[in-house]
Every structure is written in structure tokens, then in C-alpha cells.
Amino acid sequence: MTSAGTRAARLARPADVPALVDLVQSAYRGESSRAGWTTEADLIDGQRADAAMVGAAVTDPNGVVLVVEDGAGIAACCQLERRDDHAYFGMFAVSPGRQGGGLGRAMLAEAERFARDEWGVGALRMTVIRQREDLIAWYERRGYARTGELTPFPYGDERFGLPLRPDLVFETLTRKLG
């Protein structure tokens, strides 16, 4: 996966954790996230991820974190976790200034390729805040289907942020690979 000014994806290392925390936070929360279209700033305040959570993902023996760098550092990332017959896709972030130019689409395609070719799994699954209809529509245009499976938002657990409304819920999306 390459585009102008971007190198191929690589596996994240523990030394990447601080940059990954900053990237994920900037893509989803706070004022900096409003520069891109993936912001959750109107739904959730506070942190999106912390160093312990990201460090655990980077060192998980059943998963990987893929990163793409450009001249300014890590520009995109995603987490894959191997689960039985599928891979779970999460911690997907693209630097707000790089959103809308195809980097996210390329990162998602690389995650699908990795899960299919390196792990031999037949599907990718993810959870998305159901109130993020624009983001769900983006995934649907890339072949993901809504399953109707809902998971409650972890209200009261500030590691996942401070909800700004009482009705947040995650919906599972899936796509067959192959």
C-alpha cells in the first residue's frame, strides 16, 4: 500500500505507542479532530485510547497494529485481533489532515489483505457507534454489512471517553474476505 508521500504499512512497535495515542486522539476527539470527518467530538469527550490500551494492542500475541508513515510520522493505523474464523478490526485512525484522500481506504484494504492472506480468516468484523451514520455508510460502500448486533457503550468507564448523550451503542459490521 503506497501513495504519494506514504510508505507501505508496517507492524507497530512499542516505541510507536505515544505517537499512536496522539494519532487516535487527534482523529476522534477534541478540537483537532474537527479538521477531519471522523470526529466523535459531538458524541464523546475525553480520551479515545491511552498508552496502556494501545501498548496492549501492539504487544498482543493474537493481534497486530498496522501503521503507515509519511514524512511527518505515523499518518494512519489500525488494529487487527485474530478471533476464531474472523479478525476484529479496530483502533482505525487517519490523521485529520490526511482524511478524504484515500489513505483510510488503502489502510482498510491492507487490513483486509493481512487478515485474509497472513491469518487465513474469512471475515473482518468491527463495531461502530450506531449514531455515526456517515461512518457506517462509508464502510457499507466498501462492502461491509450491518449485522443488527448491538453492544452497549461502556458508560462509566472513562478509559473510553465521557459520553455527551445517553443513547450511544455500538453496532457490529462484517465483511467476508476472499
Rank of each mutant, 00 (worst) to 15 (best):
L164N: 02
A93I: 02
R34H: 08
P154W: 03
G63E: 10
D22P: 09
R165E: 02
H86R: 11
G101S: 15
I136C: 03
T127G: 09
A12T: 06
V64E: 06
A106G: 11
R13L: 11
A93H: 03
A35G: 08
D50S: 04
L162T: 13
P14Q: 00
L164F: 00
H86S: 13
A123L: 07
G143L: 02
V21Y: 04
V68R: 15
Q79N: 14
A115M: 10
G36F: 01
F153H: 01
A4F: 13
L168N: 05
L162Q: 12
R29I: 13
A19E: 12
A72P: 15
V94F: 10
L108A: 02
I74N: 03
R165P: 00
R83Q: 12
T127F: 11
G100R: 04
L164P: 00
R165K: 05
D84R: 11
D60A: 03
G73V: 06
R10Y: 08
A4D: 13
A145Y: 04
T147R: 05
G148V: 08
G46S: 09
L150Q: 13
P18F: 01
G46P: 06
D22Q: 14
E133R: 11
Y144L: 03
R10E: 15
R132Y: 00
V65I: 07
V121L: 05
T151F: 13
V17C: 01
M107N: 05
D85E: 12
I129Q: 00
V121D: 04
P163V: 03
Y88H: 10
E140F: 00
A75W: 12
T38P: 06
A123F: 11
V94H: 05
A115L: 09
L135C: 02
V17F: 07
I44Y: 00
R98L: 11
S95V: 15
Q79F: 07
P96F: 03
L162S: 09
Q79W: 11
R105G: 14
Q47C: 13
L168V: 00
F153R: 00
E140C: 05
G178N: 13
D16N: 06
K176E: 15
A51D: 11
L103M: 05
G178E: 12
R116A: 13
S95F: 14
A27L: 09
T127W: 09
C77K: 06
G55K: 09
I136H: 04
A27R: 06
K176N: 13
A52Q: 08
V94P: 00
T6C: 14
E31V: 12
F89N: 10
R105I: 04
A115Q: 07
